[in-house]
Write a protein that binds this DNA or RNA. Structure first.
Lengths: 188, 188
DNA sequence: ACACCAATGTCAGCCACTGTCATCATGTAG
DNA sequence: CTACATGATGACAGTGGCTGACATTGGTGT
């Protein structure tokens, strides 16, 4: 399916990852990435929408995991139970690739443009979760609030899971955050 | 305090606003904005960090309102009550400038880069709210979760307040969202 | 009068990103 | 076996966001 060395996309992904980690995101030009991958700048933009997107390639799988888990949750599960199931399902996915996640996140949090892109992905995740919840018969407002809760808990859990001082499983952080949520919203 | 026409920043802000509304964000160059304001492209970048920031100038006031309201809340108020006070305090600020807010939001939601910047502002708001809650003696995790709740409720309320089909006060939307939150998190 | 200052102008340049056309190995039809 | 269609890549020119360096200018303080 091509006469050139296969895996052009993967090579550029790895080259970008390395260069961003070595000298930083801003200090890396797209031409640098393409050169290390043995390709052209133009080819880079045929595979990735922009210089940032290369770091987020494959993040749709998380969206899929969340939505399918929510949709497949028992019909009698409450909205909170449905998103809890989704958050728990994501646990192993993260625990398996902790090292990579830490490196990736250190690159992202060091650069504002990358943070902006990450926030956009989270916003899309929220929309997708809300849509999944609506398929369970939830109203629009309830779905929005629950979806925001879900992604909020996810984000907070992830931030704490990344810290070297908290070497716990991702699921543990999720349960701690959920417990806090329950405490905060408990009627006084 | 200057020999040139005063209010350079305001003129560029208005010019940008008009042009973004007339022909769209992408179709407007910074040179266009500067020309309409009677200034130079270079001067634009002396006042605004980038082409997007001109639409977000002055958004620190919302952060201030939230943080001060939370810090000044009664010492015996629960975290939920503190953020409720902040959300209620923001009501009048929005109801007064509904038309402008609608136009601004229509520009922002039409362009991905602008959405990304807006999400970044919301993330910073979340951080600020969490810091304010921590001054009330709240733990880190509880502060993070509550802050996320606060900005989440705010975002959802704002989205619904903007819709032409829901001509209610901002505070009403806040209370509806808070009621949903209570229903969702109520122990079964 | 003089030096100083703060906001703007001018100019050159980098780099992200795009449109367009040429190129070339592979698969397939003839 | 040849010819052509195909899809990925190369080559090249161009736009526009953004920055650095230096000059300009009119008001301010001494």
């Amino acid at each position: 399916m091509g006469r050139w060395e296969p895996g052009a996309l993967g090579r550029m992904q790895q080259a970008a990852f390395e260069l961003y980690a070595e000298r930083g995101f801003e200090q890396t030009t797209v031409a640098d990435i393409a050169e290390r991958a043995g390709l052209t700048e133009r080819t880079f933009f045929r595979h990735f929408a922009d210089k940032r997107e290369v770091l987020f390639f494959g993040s749709e799988s998380l969206v899929d995991l969340f939505t399918t888990t929510i949709i497949d949750a028992p019909a009698d599960a409450t909205p909170l139970q449905a998103i809890t199931a989704a958050l728990e399902a994501a646990g192993p996915l993260f625990d398996e690739r902790r090292a990579g996640a830490v490196l990736r996140q250190s690159i992202i949090s060091a650069n504002t443009p990358l943070m902006e892109r990450e926030l956009m992905k989270m916003a899309k995740l929220t929309t997708a979760v809300a849509a999944a919840l609506r398929t369970r018969g939830l109203g629009e407002l309830a779905a929005s609030v629950t979806a925001d809760l879900c992604v909020g808990i996810f984000t907070i859990s992830f931030q704490r899971w990344i810290l070297p001082s908290n070497p716990q499983a991702f699921g543990d952080h999720v349960h701690q955050a959920l417990a806090e949520l329950a405490a905060i919203t408990a009627a006084p």
